[in-house]
Nucleic acid binder design. Sequence first.
DNA 1: ATAGTTATATCGGTCATCCGATATATATAA
DNA 2: TTATATATATCGGATGACCGATATAACTAT
Lengths: 97, 97
Amino acid sequence: MDDESCDMRGMLGFLILFLVSKKPMHGKEIADEIAKRKGEKPSPGTLYPAIKNLREAGFLDEEKEGKTITYALTPSGKKALTVAKRKFCKIFLGVFP
Amino acid sequence: MDDESCDMRGMLGFLILFLVSKKPMHGKEIADEIAKRKGEKPSPGTLYPAIKNLREAGFLDEEKEGKTITYALTPSGKKALTVAKRKFCKIFLGVFP
DNA sequence: ATAGTTATATCGGTCATCCGATATATATAA
DNA sequence: TTATATATATCGGATGACCGATATAACTAT
């Protein structure tokens, strides 16, 4: 999710940001959507720390209702996603058919 | 580059495999192509171990000419790339405009 | 021959990602 | 109330990605 360096390590965060941008979701929904795409559900020990990072970076807002927390992009998160998406498309140009 | 798990950590290897599939290249060319796409050239300490992994996995053939080594996909590498590409597209469906 | 450049490669260390197991808190059911 | 399920969260440990520095080997000057 950074700018510089050759880092490909932010893909999970990027994917979460992208999914939430299409529709505000809570953690379970995010996990299910990733499972549908990847074929394997991320373990809680994978997903929630990633969400926490995005929250602490100011990219996600949370709205608690009972035990579920619905996440949505902040304006800063929207901006970060736009930048990250542009970068992603440039890096992987030609991979998509 | 694996099959199971929710691992997004093999993106560099995937990208190398994809680039080499379009045209056999040596390490320097791969680094330059990544630099063009990413905006930052991977350090040798990043690139060559990644190439080595792919070679040891049987996905890359090498042909030495003087000091340069040209890498090309093996049949097994082609197969792996096809699988990885299909998975990649499914995961990131909708990210590309 | 000697020096410099280029391509490939390894090493040490840091951090992110990931999983499985476990913990907490809320809601639902018996 | 007590048990069970659900959603969120943390912990320990493993591995991958990454950089900077350094090493080797082969060309290319001078």
